[in-house]
Amino acid sequence: MSLSTAAPSSAPDETTLWQGHTSQWVHFWYYFFCVLLAIACAVGAAFTAGLSAIGLVVPLLMWVVRWWVTKCTSYELTTQRLKISSGVLNRKLDELELFRVKDYAMDQPLFLRILGLGNLTLVTSDASSPHVAIKAIPQVENVREKLRTAVQAERDRKRVRELDVDGSEGALT
């Protein structure tokens, strides 16, 4: 006698719509500071008989750690969820069901717009992550449109609607 663990036929297969990482350009000023610090150590080496050259390890280590942490954070948008995986040594996976997304906003500051990047911010009804920011991603308009379509489809599939309740109407003045 075997037990079937197949998914119900009403649940469609989950497919990946987009995968990506935050661009390293978001840390431009941090990396710029690391370069200035390295230059200062190199110049100082001339006056300290090479002793401050040891200080070059600090900006290099700062650069590598920041790059690695950013690279180890990834996003995956599927037809049902947004998965956020982060962590260098200890990994953390945070999943956001798309039917919980209340609102989304896209912004492209001038620096990111020049580079073809943008930020996507989600407001959700999820208790663990009410605000989700996906920073400096390429083709942000396309990702926003895929997110919008997937949120609507998931709400229709689950028969869920967003209800706005404003508590200010019954307030006494």
Results as ranks from 00 to 15, higher is better:
D107Y: 04
W63D: 01
L77H: 02
L60K: 07
S4C: 09
M106A: 03
A171W: 14
S85Y: 05
V165C: 05
R91V: 06
W63R: 00
L147S: 07
P138L: 05
A133G: 09
V69D: 06
C34Q: 12
T149L: 05
V151G: 05
L110C: 13
T48A: 12
P130Q: 00
R113M: 02
T124L: 08
G44Q: 08
L147N: 05
A153H: 09
P109T: 05
D156G: 14
R161D: 10
Q139T: 12
S52Y: 03
T15M: 07
L98M: 08
V140R: 06
Y31N: 02
R155Y: 15
A42P: 03
A42V: 13
W18N: 01
V101D: 02
R113Q: 11
A40S: 15
A133I: 07
A127T: 15
D156W: 06
K146Q: 09
G55K: 00
F47P: 02
L17E: 06
L51H: 12
V35W: 06
L77I: 02
T16H: 01
S85N: 04
R161C: 06
Q152R: 15
N90W: 13
L98N: 09
L110Q: 14
D103Q: 15
R144F: 07
I84R: 07
G50M: 00
L56M: 14
K135T: 14
T173A: 11
H27N: 08
L60G: 11
L93W: 09
G116C: 09
N142H: 13
W18V: 05
T173Q: 13
Q24H: 11
L61I: 05
M1S: 11
L36A: 01
G87H: 00
A40W: 15
S86P: 05
L56W: 04
R157I: 06
G87W: 10
R144G: 03
S86G: 04
W18L: 01
W25A: 04
S10A: 10
A38Q: 13
T22Q: 13
K158C: 07
N119E: 08
H131G: 01
A133K: 14
K83I: 04
